[in-house]
């Protein structure tokens, strides 16, 4: 079965971030032989005076394929891990959703979208989780992280929100690579222009210092913009951090 594991509000100013904890849960899932984990995505939620958050209010989520009999072990492990590893003063929440068991109404996706625009309550998160048959639990503090955890799962399932955790590694950082070569990589599903222009396999892409992908149409997409500053036949360059800020 395919599941989503989403966590939120696990850190403080001095501790490892929520993304680091998500990575450790994903590794543990594989090390314990429960299944295989896919990439982790970061989902920006609303920043608002009525929402307590450490510094940026983002949730982290990943999809995993596990055997059905491992589900309870995965949930128990993630819950115990968050209780043990979350930082003092944090309000951690955990969401585990079995994708095939979710109704087709798309309510969890809509919940995620709403969490980017509105202040939500813990009670409404639990109510929706109950109705959808989704695991939702809190592991310290006020437990308000359940809101972001549920929203993170919805945004990941929606497939059109967030940046993938980590940077892409290249043999020659700063060099130029063909679109065809980029599309051949396992960590890039597609190369697209930020403005929607057509990107051809023969086109060359100059690599920036930090190369990251974003989640669009449920896939890891490398966004590029027209190359500037050089006339060496390179048509595109990877997006800067600033250009990816809104994802």
């Amino acid at each position: 079965m395919q599941i989503l594991i989403s966590i939120d509000d696990t850190d403080n100013l001095e501790s490892p971030g929520t993304g680091a904890l998500a990575s450790r849960i994903a590794v543990d899932l594989e090390d314990n032989g429960w299944g295989t984990s896919s990439f982790i995505t970061r989902h920006q939620l609303l920043v608002h005076p009525d929402i307590p958050y450490t510094s940026h209010n983002s949730a982290m989520c990943f999809q995993a394929r596990i055997e059905p009999q491992s589900l309870e072990q995965v949930i128990s492990h993630a819950a115990e891990f968050l209780t043990r590893e979350s930082a003092p003063g944090s309000d951690p929440g955990l969401c585990v959703a079995v994708i095939d068991r979710l109704p087709e109404s798309g309510e969890i996706i809509q919940y995620g979208r709403t969490a980017k625009e509105s202040v939500l309550t813990k009670e409404s998160a639990y109510e929706l989780a109950r109705r959808l048959g989704v695991h939702l639990s809190e592991h310290g503090g006020t437990g308000l992280g359940v809101i972001g955890a549920l929203a993170g799962a919805g945004l990941r399932l929606g497939g059109n929100d967030g940046r993938l955790k980590g940077q892409l590694a290249f043999a020659e950082p700063g060099g130029a690579v063909s679109v065809a070569a980029l599309r051949d990589r396992e960590d890039i599903d597609e190369v697209r222009a930020l403005d929607g222009s057509s990107v051809e396999n023969r086109d060359m892409v100059r690599l920036g210092d930090k190369v990251k992908t974003v989640l669009l149409d449920g896939r890891a997409i490398l966004l590029v913009v027209p190359a500037v500053g050089q006339s060496d036949g390179v048509r595109w360059q990877t997006c800067s951090r600033q250009q990816l800020k809104e994802y």
Binding site: L13, G19, S58, K210, R241
Partner: peptide, 23 residues
């Protein structure tokens, strides 16, 4: 801050600092 939370192209920027808080 951790790489995933950095948004400025300049490595040393308040926007990339662990101790900034977004509103």
């Amino acid at each position: 801050d951790e790489e995933d939370e950095q948004v400025a192209d300049e490595p040393c920027s308040c926007y990339n600092c662990r101790y900034r808080r977004w509103t």
